[in-house]
């Protein structure tokens, strides 16, 4: 099959998916994206646990303040992921392509290999930016319903429980990838959450505001 252009894709979107799948296999994008997804979602949840606990031990009673801090932190994590992954991934891919070009003695930029490499950079950057942002937003979700919940302490507790649940879910995802015990992985990621919560709690003198 000769490489398709945008007009072909417009008329046959199925071809776009086929090509993207082929490029993804060629550049090994799936594996890297999966790794980034788990690692950065994990980062996102633990960071927001830090934000929640910091606010809790600091005695912040206004959910709006917590939301604002949480949103800014999530955004910063998203931007950091996107930017960081784009720069590192494109540098690595460029280096790999240059090495291959040296071996083939020809330019590979317009070949499937070059295109797959560029698509990999974009995909991985998006995953790297989106994963911590989305994970953080999930944890912050109960805070948006603080008014309906009524009690700010219950809201904190609900958010922390959501965080632990998300961590457990991530563990299950990792367990599924490894083909090993789902619960085992789930408990290990969960433990990280408990450690983080406990340390923050102790840091605040063992009590909330």
């Amino acid at each position: 099959m000769i490489m398709n252009d945008i007009n072909t894709y417009r008329h046959q979107p199925r071809l776009l998916f086929e090509d993207m799948r082929e490029y993804s296999t060629l550049a090994g994008t799936g594996e890297i994206a999966r790794r980034y997804l788990a690692m950065n979602a994990f980062d996102g949840v633990l960071t927001i646990i830090g934000v929640l606990m910091g606010n809790y031990v600091g005695g912040v009673q206004d959910p709006e303040v917590v939301i604002n801090i949480g949103l800014s932190t999530s955004l910063a994590m998203g931007i950091s992921g996107l930017w960081g992954a784009y720069l590192t991934e494109s540098a690595e891919r460029e280096r790999e392509l240059a090495k291959l070009e040296q071996a083939t003695l020809s330019s590979l930029r317009q070949t499937k290999i070059g295109k797959a490499s560029r698509l990999a950079v974009i995909t991985v950057s998006l995953v790297d930016g989106f994963a911590p942002f989305a994970a953080a937003m999930i944890v912050l979700l109960p805070l948006f319903f603080a008014a309906a919940i009524g009690n700010v302490m219950v809201t904190y507790l609900l958010s922390l429980m959501t965080a632990l649940l998300t961590l457990f879910g991530l563990g299950i995802f990792l367990g599924k990838i490894s083909g090993r015990s789902l619960i085992g992985y789930g408990l290990r990621t969960l433990l990280a959450g408990f450690v983080s919560i406990t340390l923050s709690f102790l840091l605040g003198g063992g009590h909330g505001g």
Binding site: I2, M3, T104, S106, Q110, T111, K112, I113
Partner: peptide, 13 residues
């Protein structure tokens, strides 16, 4: 021409 094009787009020379 088509054969050459396919080999090139797959990175071959």
């Amino acid at each position: 021409a088509k054969v050459e094009e396919i080999i090139a787009e797959n990175g071959g020379a």
